[in-house]
Design a protein around this nucleic acid. Structure first.
Lengths: 135, 135
DNA sequence: GTAAACTAAGACTTAAAGAGTCGTATTTAA
DNA sequence: TTAAATACGACTCTTTAAGTCTTAGTTTAC
């Protein structure tokens, strides 16, 4: 109930893999899928999403594939999560993800206040953690 | 994708509510459900689970209900989560929840190492946060 | 001793999200 | 022209969370 999705997991594995290759190396989805035993189709979609958001560059055709489009030092784990899952995917408590006005229990419930701190902590850690540090 | 479940949310709201009442006050599920606009049936189940694990004491019959069975200072948010969702509900990455031997990608994938740090951080925060601090 | 107000517990249904699959189109090098 | 790659949408399957329903048991007040 409190896990990163497979898609994020696969995305991180893929990006990390690319970061470990010499800069500019073209890596194929198939290669990654085989090496880490990931379902090709699903990984392919994740790659497409990462490419669409310019985190990786795509090359079509016979010797196509992907390369990292950013420095591993600048690429944050939080970036990868946000791209794959959409913004504010990491939102500990639902109440907080909507505007306070929309929350029926907002006036009486202050439970979120301490949890928002935890939220902040998680966000900070994810923002500070670069792909480089995973290599 | 990275949220506390409603059940945990309801559980925290309930426990916090009880912590705010004078010690020994018997609180009914109905009362909490109405006050915070929570679905009675679902909340009732959460209460039962909390009672079964001795976090709260249950009293049946006409003037029955529940009271906190522990000090709010000693009751950790992590306790509530673990009781309601089962142990290791907060497990950032699946790979880590199983034994390394069972993980096919274990030998090649080291992605989890940095994420385990995050896991530790989250656990620490949840372990340190008491219900008392939510009141 | 019976009715009312509770908890207890399990079975069931529904809804949503995640994971994975399939088919087809497009691009490009050889 | 063929093979190997990306691109993309539609689809199914599975799981889990959320919520509902039903029945049983307990206690107090009258």
């Amino acid at each position: 109930m409190f896990q990163l999705s497979k898609r994020v997991e696969y995305g991180l594995i893929a990006v990390r893999h690319m970061a470990m290759c010499p800069a500019g190396t073209i890596v194929t989805t198939k290669e990654i899928a085989e090496k880490y035993h990931l379902p090709y189709e699903l990984l392919a979609k994740v790659m497409q999403k990462l490419a669409r958001e310019k985190f990786i560059s795509s090359y079509q055709g016979v010797h196509g594939g992907y390369t990292l489009a950013r420095n591993a030092e600048e690429l944050k784990v939080s970036d990868v999560i946000n791209v794959i899952e959409g913004k504010s995917a990491v939102t500990i408590i639902q109440c907080e993800s909507e505007s306070p006005q929309n929350c029926i229990i907002h006036t009486t419930c202050t439970i979120k206040n301490p949890l928002v701190k935890l939220q902040g902590t998680i966000n900070r850690v994810l923002n500070d953690l670069t792909i480089m540090e995973m290599v």
